[in-house]
Every structure is written in structure tokens, then in C-alpha cells.
Design a protein around this nucleic acid. Structure first.
Lengths: 240, 240
DNA sequence: ATTTTCTATTTGTAAGACAAATCATGTTAA
DNA sequence: TTAACATGATTTGTCTTACAAATAGAAAAT
């Protein structure tokens, strides 16, 4: 019983894997154009359709982007933290939607992870980092902005806070958690019509970060999370 | 100048987006079969090729999986932490390969995040969790296994440790960091021929987790990370 | 010199055909 | 009766060909 080669991945998957590894190993550099689809098809000895399906797989992972026209083609793109975190956050949101992940778990994760993160921020925050955080805070303080804009500024604030750690991996990971928390913030902001609590806590956090007040900063963040969880539960209860 | 609808996303992207939202909103439940490709093509008024490219996008995100045959089709799959973390870890590895992320940043992130994580584990670890951790440790202790198997067991150990927090989001996030650390462990294990250090630290961690020794557990993990970073730098230096 | 037009190139979309896998069903043989 | 086998229907996988749409650069016209 020859067991006929168990795993038979589809061609498009194989091609995608080969291209991916070619990109990762630097055979194709960032911004560079891949060979045309016809050429790839010829080179791998498959049809253009298969190459295209492979490229779509890579495009879905933000690894390549296509442009039409005579100077067009499929280009290797620099994956950004934002985009990556966005797709991760989408995945987390999906898990929530499917009931595989609870809001309390997301907040719990944020709570568990923030401590070390804030410590790093206190150690590494530069003047520029602080300015970015303040900018987000100022945008948030504008009473004229919409709920959506307020939430966007909220995300920007927390991202800037993580940026202050100066650690790319930390940014990558925490952006995901922040992204996953967006629905919570959205709900709280739209139901509780009081923005002042959030703003004042944010201001407090910025001040304490400036003063390098480690324990104070942690306490403020904890307070913020308590507030969010409480209001969210109230909102959920009120809806049911 | 009517500005003709700025953003013209490709059809396959639009279809992918529509299907995605249909899945997220629960129109298609998990495990369910989507309409056949022909039917989707007809329903959206596009060609089957376009539908297929859209499905490949979703497949790349582990949202659907295709099976051939008369009972086959494209099925909505339950995204697992493992798969998600794997693709995230791949993204992180990519960032490392492109020089956008340093090994020290990954280890730094691990160091910053583990504290709160271990606290959670100490609070929530059940007997079953501890058994899983021990199982991974036992596999790792077997002197007969290959380097690859050793590293797999290492990953299993750290995953089990995070599982003990009982928090899905934490698992999701930390799996990513663990995944991103695999290349480091690989290199250290293959260059430093001594597995005993890692094993004894792991054993120590399990013991301290059992004793609910918070500070001790943190210290062990810090020690392990110090060890990894040191050996990794030695190995890198030796290679250069 | 500037604007317009043309042209070549490349991805995007469509349509049709066949291969390969897979299951349900019926048929035959023991 | 039961088990093995053959057949057909269904669905995804792949290939082929053709044309549409976008785009940049060259050529032509003003």
C-alpha cells in the first residue's frame, strides 16, 4: 500500500508558498516588481490562473500588491504594523463574533499585558513620543468631533503610548489588542454620553508618564480598564 | 469633474469582502458550506475565476477551506488559535527577515509581557493545565529526540504555560510571540549542544508554578530569556 | 514647447473545457 | 445476505483563450 504521498496541496498554494519564501529570503526585495504573471506561469510550468490565485493569497496577507499598466505588475510591499495589526484585530473581532472569545478576556488580556508595556514606555519614551501622545489627546479633547473621530483618537492615543516603548514587536502585539478593544470603546462611547472620564484619565496618564511615575501610571490604566469594563457591562445589560 | 468614484477595488476583493462580512455576521455559520462556486458566480453576476480568487483570499486568512467531490465545497472553518498565531508568527518572522524587527525586540517584548501573563497562570492554572505543561516537559526531557522535536516540545511547553491563564485573547497574543521566538530557539538548540540548561529552568518553572511562587516564577522566566539572548548573541557572533 | 494620440505592456475579468477527487447509488459476485 | 466493485453525479482544481481596462512612454500634432 504505497500510501500515495499524503499531503497534496493545491498548485496555487504551492506557488504561493514558493513566492512567499522567495520574498522572505530576500530574493525579491521590498518595493521590487515580481516577474509578470505570464512569466511566472511559464517559469513554474503552470497556468496563469494558478499563478493569479497564488498572488491573491499573498495579497490577502498584504505581502504583494498589484498595479495595472505598462509599468505595472505585482510588487512586494513593506508590511506595516498598522496593517498587520488591523488584520489581526479583525481576526480577534471574528473570534468575538463567533463567541470563541469574550470581551472580558480581551480586557483581561489588556490588563495582564499593559504593566510591562507601560514600564517600557516609562523607560524609553522620548520627547517626540510624548508629543505624539499629547497630540492624540488634544484631538480627543475637541468637543466638536464625532463619536467615530473620538474613537479614532482614542486608538491613536493608545497606539502612541505603545509606540513610546520603542519596541517594534511590542507595537505589533499591542496594536492587535488595541484593535480588538475598539468595539468596546465604540459601544461605551456611543451609549455613555460622557467623554470626560476617559479624557481625564488619559490626561492623568500622560502626566504620570512625563513624571516617570511608574505605579501611578499603572494605576491610571487599571482605572481606565475598570471603567470601560463597568460601562460596557452596564450597556450590555441595558440592551438586554 | 465628477471625480469618478475614487476607489475601484477589484471584483475579487469586493466579493471577498462581501463573503467575509457574511461570515462574520453569521449568515454563514461555522462548518457550513458556502454555495458552489458556479452559484456564487451567478449570484454576484461575475465569472467563476473572480469568485475563486476571492475564495483564495479568504483561504489565505484561514476563513474558508475547500474540499473537492460531490459533498465538497467551500466551508467556513473555525479559526484556531494555533493557526492564527502561526500566520501571525510568520508575519513577525517576515518582519525580522526584512530587518524591520530585531531579535532583541522580540525577546524584549516577551520579557515585558510575560510578567502579567505568568501572574494570570498562577491564579488560574488547574490540575489539567499543570499536567499538560508537565507532558511537554517530559517530551522535552527525552534525550533521544531530534532537535526539531525538542523545539516543538519547547513551543508546546510555553503554549501550555499560556493556556494555563485560561484567557483566550492572551493565548492568541502570546502564541504569536512564542511563534516569533522559534527561530531563536532553533538556533540556540542547534548551536549550543547543551539542552540541560533549558530543561532545568523549565522544570524549575513548573515547580514554582505549582507552589504558586509568583516572584520565583518570574525570575525563572527572566533567567531563561537571559540565557536565550546570551546564547543567541554568542551564536550570531560565532557565525560572523 | 505643450498637448494630444497612439501603442505596447500588464493586470483584471470572462467563458469554456477537462481533470481529479469524492460520495451516493446500484450492480454483481461470493 | 453481504461485500466488493463499477458507475455516475457533483464539485473543486487547472488550463486555455480571449478580451477589457489601466497605465506609462513614445510619437505626432498643434
Amino acid at each position: 500500500m504505497p500510501q500515495t504521498a499524503v499531503a497534496k496541496a493545491s498548485i496555487s498554494k504551492q506557488i504561493a508558498e514558493q513566492l512567499r519564501s522567495a520574498i522572505v529570503t530576500g530574493q525579491f526585495k521590498i518595493g521590487e516588481r515580481l516577474p509578470t504573471e505570464d512569466e511566472l506561469a511559464q517559469r513554474y510550468g503552470v497556468s496563469r490562473s494558478s499563478v493569479r490565485e497564488a498572488l491573491k493569497r499573498l495579497a490577502a496577507q498584504n505581502l504583494v500588491r498589484a498595479r495595472r499598466g505598462s509599468t505595472g505588475g505585482n510588487f512586494v510591499v513593506q508590511p506595516s504594523y498598522e496593517e498587520l495589526a488591523e488584520s489581526l484585530g479583525a481576526a480577534a473581532t471574528l473570534l468575538v463574533g463567533l463567541g470563541a472569545l469574550g470581551i472580558d478576556e480581551i480586557i483581561g488580556a489588556r490588563r495582564a499585558l499593559q504593566g510591562g508595556c507601560l514600564d517600557q514606555a516609562i523607560t524609553h519614551a522620548t520627547r517626540e513620543h510624548l508629543a505624539n501622545i499629547e497630540a492624540a489627546l488634544l484631538r480627543q479633547q475637541d468637543p466638536g468631533i464625532s463619536d467615530e473621530a473620538f474613537c479614532r483618537a482614542d486608538v491613536a492615543f493608545h497606539r502612541a503610548l505603545v509606540d513610546a516603548t520603542g519596541n517594534g514587536m511590542l507595537r505589533f502585539v499591542m496594536y492587535t489588542v488595541i484593535e480588538a478593544l475598539i468595539p468596546v470603546t465604540n459601544m461605551v462611547v456611543s451609549v455613555v454620553r460622557e467623554r470626560g472620564d476617559i479624557i481625564s484619565l488619559h490626561r492623568q496618564m500622560l502626566e504620570r508618564l512625563r513624571k516617570r511615575d511608574r505605579d501611578g501610571l499603572r494605576a491610571s490604566m487599571d482605572q481606565l480598564l475598570d471603567y470601560l469594563l463597568l460601562k460596557f457591562e452596564q450597556a450590555s445589560a441595558g440592551r438586554a
